[in-house]
């Protein structure tokens, strides 16, 4: 029963987010601030993780190629497919559910605890539009992070594969170019947009409707991370089933 009520409350929140818009000049500033907080400040961790995971994928693939009939180009191919189809869109989203999601929940939750949300309402601001809408717009830039993640993952794989002595440069690049379906990029970016929406709204819901004090802010952040991750995994499964299965 509680879950049903929570789901209803989430959709009612979305309705309010898109009603009674905040003044345009104020909203513009908020959007730039959110892009900085949620996108630009996430670039470092995304770049670091993507680069090294790309490297690990290349090494793991190479170490498991003990059949001489399997071409070495598979190392580049496996790195590309892993990065584009799953690692960059899905796992980066889960990593960002920890980083950006917790940030969103704790920021909004702290505002709730310290009555800043009440202050917005008394001033006549639609607090949900003011707090959540700029985050949704900022997260529209999430695919840029995913592009960077894809590129750095493949670069990491290339450097680990070639300079680690597992593949030649020509083999790796041939593997990267082998049987490339542009639709895989469409699939990856389509689900990235869905994950971006979840990343902006689920942690916001947890922060906005939390009750209690600072201890509960911490608990809400943890819950937000768990639920955002669960929803990303479920959405990933459904989208994959719909778009990729024959």
């Amino acid at each position: 029963m509680k879950y049903l009520r929570d789901i209803g409350s989430y959709f009612l929140m979305l309705k309010k987010v898109f009603s009674s818009p905040t003044k345009r000049s104020v909203m513009r500033e908020l959007i730039f601030k959110e892009i900085d907080d949620l996108i630009i400040r996430s670039l470092g961790i995304v770049a670091f993780i993507s680069f090294f995971i790309g490297g690990v994928i290349a090494i793991q693939t190479a170490l498991n190629l003990d059949n001489p009939l399997i071409p070495k180009t598979l190392i580049g191919f496996a790195t590309r497919q892993s990065m584009i189809l799953e690692f960059a869109p899905t796992f980066m989203s889960i990593i960002l559910a920890g980083r950006a999601g917790s940030f969103i929940t704790s920021t909004i939750g702290s505002m709730r605890v310290t009555e800043q949300i009440d202050a917005l309402e008394v001033i006549g601001v639609n607090s949900l539009n003011y707090l959540v809408f700029p985050k949704i717009i900022a997260m529209l830039f999430f695919p840029f992070i995913i592009v960077i993640s894809m590129f750095l993952g493949m670069l990491g794989g290339y450097l680990a594969g070639v300079y680690g002595g597992f593949s030649t440069s020509a083999d790796f690049i041939a593997g990267l170019q082998n049987t490339f379906y542009p639709f895989h990029l469409v699939y990856a970016f389509f689900k990235t947009f869905l994950f971006a929406f979840l990343l902006a709204t689920v942690p916001s819901w947890h922060g906005f409707y939390m009750k209690g004090g600072s201890l509960e802010v911490g608990k809400a952040s943890t819950k937000a991370f768990v639920w955002t991750s669960i929803l990303i995994i479920l959405t990933n499964y459904i989208v994959t089933q719909l778009l990729l299965s024959q």
Partner: peptide, 29 residues
């Protein structure tokens, strides 16, 4: 709303804004 002002128990000042922007906020709205 425009005709209403409220002083909250803990102040409820917006942490992300400096004093000037906090006081200016209702005016900007």
């Amino acid at each position: 709303r425009e005709e209403t002002g409220m002083l909250f128990q803990g102040g409820a000042l917006f942490d992300s804004m400096n004093i000037e922007d906090n006081v200016m906020f209702p005016l900007r709205m």
